[in-house]
Nucleic acid binder design. Structure first.
Lengths: 257, 257
DNA sequence: TAACATTGTGTCGCATCGACGCATTAGATA
DNA sequence: TATCTAATGCGTCGATGCGACACAATGTTA
């Protein structure tokens, strides 16, 4: 199994390739079936699922490292990526856990091994279009798939805390940044956009006020087409006005729910 | 000179004491003479001023490390401290710069020395009461003093960028967090609080609307005393209602300027 | 004691937001 | 094919918040 061989290389040579002490973890959000999804990995060495993460090459910008991890796991380039918090507790990882995990794989890791050392991790969250993602496990993982946010219970190490903080940040940023472009298809209806907001905020919003507010931001273009096929009246299709969207990304919106 | 001796110890043994690759820098804001001040250090080894920073001990939480640095430079314990961004460009520091700097001090540092390595730095900003601070240089610095924000031009490495990002974050947080408790004396007048806001935001605000808004937050207690001595009508003194202040710290305020 | 600058308090108009009404329309139903 | 149904498009009303402004109150100075 070649991925297993890559894994051994990673274990053996990682220490000299990567910047020590620093790691990053990505909370990758997607939207599907009116539910907020998170992309998780299951390592062969452990029973728990974990956030896709990685390390920073010696001469690599940490932001580029996050983009690289995202590209590797999702296959996507055009990404909404936000650094949101650094997790720097000295006991957030435990080398005993790692040791046991790798022992399962028949790999012995001592306390001096680079993976046994303490890591300070930088949290990034990303918004991606669900349909465009091809989940692919890394060399140390046996599975990689979307999870419904509500079904996630325990995660590896402190990854649940990281996920919670990411969600908290996303909810805050929803008030200042135009969010939706990376989570929805290019053409979408107002009810679909509303569902997205309701799912993220975990509360219901008034249909008519939502429409007024959203159109008020001026970042949407209403198309002449409608989405037919669903029962009842066909809603208009919208797309983002990229000029104004990018402007809003820089300048921010206003107000709040 | 004992501080010089400590400095040599720091240079020689730091590599084994600290977590590699990771540093932190603090943007310490104070308010005095209606101007926003920042505490800066001047190292003996370099002509440029820099932000107070530090490294993380092997078994130390990174947040605790920031608190430690602040305590060392200011003597203050009760601190408003916010992690705001990670700066992770691979070329943000340049070991040549360090090498030249230390050569001045008669200390030779090779490219393999721990201080010559690449560091990813975590930015913290702090709000402190100007009058309570006793600026004290660290072992590598010859001076430590307050600078008016407007007088700061070039700083060491990328510290000016870090300062700018801190200021940007502070201005944003002004809309969500109750700010003032750590920057003002315990008792203060409404005009004084307004001056603080105006200085941070770099714009003038309407006196009457400011008062309405501030009292509306419900985190202020108006005392029965007034501040006499200044010419003209004596303004009331206020203090923060700590119960409601702390609640607002957690829950956030609302709106925005 | 009068002049003056600053502070305390209130008002007016406008924009925004939450709550809600009503007409329109595509598909389902019979 | 006519009718029903439920979701959507569009509008209204009242409360609230905010910017701009007026005026009275007050402590110091001359």
């Amino acid at each position: 199994m070649s991925s297993h061989k890559n894994f051994r290389t990673f274990i053996l040579e990682g220490g000299s390739l990567f910047q020590p002490s620093v790691s990053l973890d990505c909370v990758i959000f997607g939207f599907h079936d009116n539910e907020l999804k998170v992309l998780l990995l299951k390592s062969r060495a452990n029973d728990l699922w974990s956030l896709p993460g990685g390390f920073v090459f010696k001469e690599e910008d940490i932001e580029d490292a996050a983009i690289r991890v995202l590209k590797e796991r999702t296959g996507i380039n055009d990404i909404f990526l936000q650094q949101f918090h650094v997790f720097g507790s000295p006991n957030r990882s435990d080398w005993n856990v790692h040791q046991k995990s790798f022992k399962k794989e028949g790999i012995e890791i001592g306390p001096d091994h680079w993976l046994s050392k303490r890591f300070i991790t930088v949290g990034y969250y990303a918004l991606v279009e669900f349909a465009h993602v091809t989940p692919s496990p890394d060399t140390s993982a046996e599975a990689c798939r979307w999870w419904d946010l509500n079904d996630i219970d325990e995660l590896f190490m402190d990854h649940k805390q990281i996920l919670n903080k990411a969600l908290e940040t996303l909810r805050l940023q929803l008030n200042h940044l135009p969010i939706g472009y990376n989570l929805l298809p290019q053409k979408f209806t107002m009810p679909e956009l509303q569902k997205l907001y309701e799912t993220i905020l975990n509360k219901t919003l008034d249909r008519r006020n939502f429409q007024r507010r959203m159109t008020g931001f001026g970042i949407l273009k209403r198309l002449k087409e409608t989405r037919k096929g669903g029962a009842h009246r066909a809603p208009y299709l919208y797309s983002f006005d990229m000029r104004k969207y990018r402007k809003a990304l820089k300048q921010g919106l206003y107000g709040g729910w």
